[in-house]
Design a protein around this nucleic acid. Structure first.
Length: 233
DNA sequence: CCCCCCCC
């Protein structure tokens, strides 16, 4: 995969302006749609959103093909949406700032891979345009928002949903070495015990690079964790 | 179009 092939989405042209329809916020001559109003049936929209999370650029190779992708979580006053850019649209220099984003495909989100509370997600296309937003009121836009699940309620949530948990690390296990059954690869594993104000504890398993994250070593400090549910013991 | 997340 050649990183030189990475292309920035086109910015709005200088003289290119949209007619203002008379309702909704307006930013840099664009009518702004709330993130929660986006759906597959809505094809003319522009959102004004803050980047609250971003992934590393990931490459994949499987029987369906290969490529690279990058995803960001976007938030405005109405809510959040996950956005993914593939191949030519993927670019890694997306700082945690506010952008006007227009164009792309809205599809049904897979809740297995995001805790964002939105039925849809956005896929960047060659038509997607991204422009830094310079409005004064962008400071009103939310930063990361967690949708917290109480540890006591984790058992009631369907398997394989990604959830947010806030808790205290009360016990840290040793770093262990395991052999993956499928690949026979050696894996580092560490269990920590997490407790919250619902009075219940749960084991949080850390793998590989996660094992070394110092955030888990601060016993009795409070942190937010965005984790996937697997087997509940 | 990713979407793997492993061990006991």
């Amino acid at each position: 995969m050649n990183s030189n092939a990475v292309v920035q989405p086109r910015s709005f042209g200088q003289g290119e302006q949209r007619a203002v329809s008379g309702r909704g916020a307006v930013s840099q001559d664009r009518v702004i749609f709330p993130i929660t109003s986006l759906s597959p049936y809505q094809n003319r929209w522009c959102i004004r959103a803050r980047v609250t999370q971003k992934s590393v650029v990931k490459t994949w190779c499987n029987k369906r093909g290969d490529g690279r992708l990058f995803s960001v979580d976007l938030a405005d006053e109405s809510g959040e949406i996950r956005a993914t850019a593939f191949n030519a649209e993927s670019h890694c220099g997306f700082p945690f700032k506010v952008y006007l984003i227009q164009g792309g495909t809205i599809k049904v989100a897979n809740r297995q891979f995001t805790s964002i509370d939105n039925d849809y997600e956005l896929t960047f296309s060659p038509e997607t345009r991204v422009e830094p937003c310079f409005d004064e009121n962008v400071c009103d836009l939310p930063e990361v928002s967690f949708h917290l699940t109480k540890i006591k309620e984790i058992g009631e949530i369907s398997r394989d949903r990604l959830i947010d948990v806030i808790g205290v690390v009360v016990m840290i296990g040793p770093i262990e070495s395991k052999i993956a059954r499928s690949t026979l690869k050696e894996l580092k594993k560490r269990d920590v015990l997490l407790v919250d104000d619902s009075g219940v504890s749960i084991t949080l398993s850390l793998w590989e690079a996660e094992v070394h994250k110092s955030v888990y070593e601060q016993i009795l400090n409070c942190h937010c964790f965005r984790q996937k549910i697997s087997t509940v013991k």
